[in-house]
Design a protein around this nucleic acid. Sequence first.
DNA 1: CCTTTCAGTGAACATCCGTACACTGAAACC
DNA 2: GGTTTCAGTGTACGGATGTTCACTGAAAGG
Lengths: 213, 213
Amino acid sequence: MTTQPATETRQERKERTRRALLDAALDQLAEESFGSLSLRRLTKQVGIVPTAFYRHFSSLDEMGLALVDESFVSLRAMIRDVRRDQPPPDELIERSVDVLSRQLDANMAHFRFIGRERYGGVAPIREAIAHELGLIERELATDLARMPGLEAWGAADLQLLAGLFVNLMVVAAYEMVGPGAEDPAVRREIEETLRHQARMIVVGVAGWQPLER
Amino acid sequence: MTTQPATETRQERKERTRRALLDAALDQLAEESFGSLSLRRLTKQVGIVPTAFYRHFSSLDEMGLALVDESFVSLRAMIRDVRRDQPPPDELIERSVDVLSRQLDANMAHFRFIGRERYGGVAPIREAIAHELGLIERELATDLARMPGLEAWGAADLQLLAGLFVNLMVVAAYEMVGPGAEDPAVRREIEETLRHQARMIVVGVAGWQPLER
DNA sequence: CCTTTCAGTGAACATCCGTACACTGAAACC
DNA sequence: GGTTTCAGTGTACGGATGTTCACTGAAAGG
C-alpha cells in the first residue's frame, strides 16, 4: 500500500494516509453516527492495517475532534465569503443562502458531520461542536450590530437573533445535504424554505407579506 | 428474576419487562446514541438473558420505533395541554413554554431521545421522527390558521411559520434536557432564550423592543 | 555510507457482539 | 387435572471489536 509514482517525501505520504483516514471517516459517517464508527472498518477502507491508525491519531475521539476542526474551517470560509463583498442589507439573506448552497456541494460531508453529531452521541465531539457554534454565534452577533436599524440593540438582543439564524442555517444545511435530499428538487425546496423563514424572522409575523401562489 | 409479591397475570409480567427494556434503553440513550446500543447491555441492565429480548421485539430497530411512538405520545399530550385551555393569543408563547417546561421533567428521556436521534445515525428511526415532526408541523399550521391576523394566510405561509416554531421547540427542549443542563440556572436561561426568540419571530426584527437590562 | 527514524506489518490477546437451539417451569386454558 | 402456551434460561457458535507487541524496510540525516 501507499507506494506512489516516484518522489514523495515521507511526511507527504503520512499526510496522505491521514487525509485518507479522515475521508474514510466522513464517508462512513454518511451512513452511521460517530459513536458506532469502527477503527477496523476505517483502516480497512484506507487499505492499512488496524494498528497503523495509531500512527496518526491516539484514539477515534481525537480523530473526531480533527474532523470538527476542519469542518469549521469550511464553515468559517463560507461566512468569510459572505462578509467579503459587503452585501447591502436587503440582499444579505439572498447572498448568504447562495453562498451556503454553493459551499454545500464542496463540503457536503463536513456539514453532514456537524448536523449529525451536534446533538449526537459522543460527548467530547458534541461539546467541541457546541463551542465552535457558540463562537460563530457571537461573531455573527457583532456583525449584525453594524447593520442599519440594529445599532441600538444590546448584546443580549443581538445574541438572540444570531442564535435564531445560526440554528436555522445548521438545520437547513443538514437537511439539504443529509439523507433524503439527493433529489435536486427537494433540495431547492428546502433552500427556498430557508430563504422565506429567514425573511420571516426579519420582518416578523406582523410584517409578513403572504407568498403569492 | 421477575418474581413479584403475589398475583400478577402473565401479560402483566410480560408488559413489565417490556417496559423495563424500554426504560433501560432510554436510560442508556442519555449517554450514547441509538446506533451504538447493545442488546446485551440492555438485557443485562434489565436482568434477563440476552435471548429473552426477542420475546418482546424482533430487533433493536423495532424497539427504537416503539420509543419514537411513545415519545410522540408525550409530545402530543403536551400540545393538547396547551390547546385545551385556549390561551389568548398574546399569552400563547408564555403558556406554551410553561407547559413545555413542566412536561420536560416528566418526560426528559423522551425529549432527549427525539433531539438526539432526529438527525442521528439509524435511518428508520430518523425517518420515523421526521415523519412525526412533519405531522405536528401540519397540525400546528392549522391551529395557527385560526389565530387573529393569520386568517388570511395561505397554507404555505402557515407551514413556514409552523416549521420555525417546531424547530425552535425541539432544539430548545433538547438543550434544556440534554447534557449540560443539569444546572437549573442554565436551564432557566435556555427557557428565557426560547421565550424571547419565539417572540422575536412573531414581532420580527423590525418590531423588536430591546430587552431592558 | 552507515545509522536512525518511523509508517506500516502481522500475529495474538481478551472481550464483546448478535443469534441459534434445546430447555424449563409456571401461568393459562379446556 | 391434565395439556398447552410461552417468558425466560443456558450453552455454544462464529465473527468483530480495540489494543499489545516485536517486526520490517525504506526514507531521512549525519
